[in-house]
Amino acid sequence: MASTVPFKLISPTRVVFQGDAELVIAVTTEGEEGILPKHAPFLAALRPGVLRANVVADGASQRLELATGEGFMQALPDRITVLVDDALAFDDVDVARAREDLAAATERQKAEPIESAAFAREQAAIDFAGAKLRLTGH
């Protein structure tokens, strides 16, 4: 069996996942990053996207896939911690709502100058809505 590392996924309102992971893949601002156990100390800002992890639950390996908002990932040799604004599983995603959010944010972003904070904010909303749709296979 592959080696594992304690992995925690935390949102401001709850601990979304806590357990052991064989692999955690998150979308950082620099691109997708996969973290294995015994990783050198590493800290990254995350873009909204689909976070994937191979976790061990009840002795069996399982795939964890969640649409996550902006956040941060901290990897240490003995643990991985991910902070996110929000994390939604497949069943939690409201596809119609995500589509509306995506369209509305895209529309709002057009009015904002590139490089402005508002533009970046709308981009995050677009990415999060996009992640929800990708997670549910749309």
Binding site: T29, P41, F42, L43, A45, E70, F72, D85
Partner: peptide
Amino acid sequence: RAPSGSVEFAGSPEFVLSRLLPK
């Protein structure tokens, strides 16, 4: 806490900090 100076950052530490402060 991780031993300081040995942490690797995606982007620069300044960039990650600029993301963390609003949060």
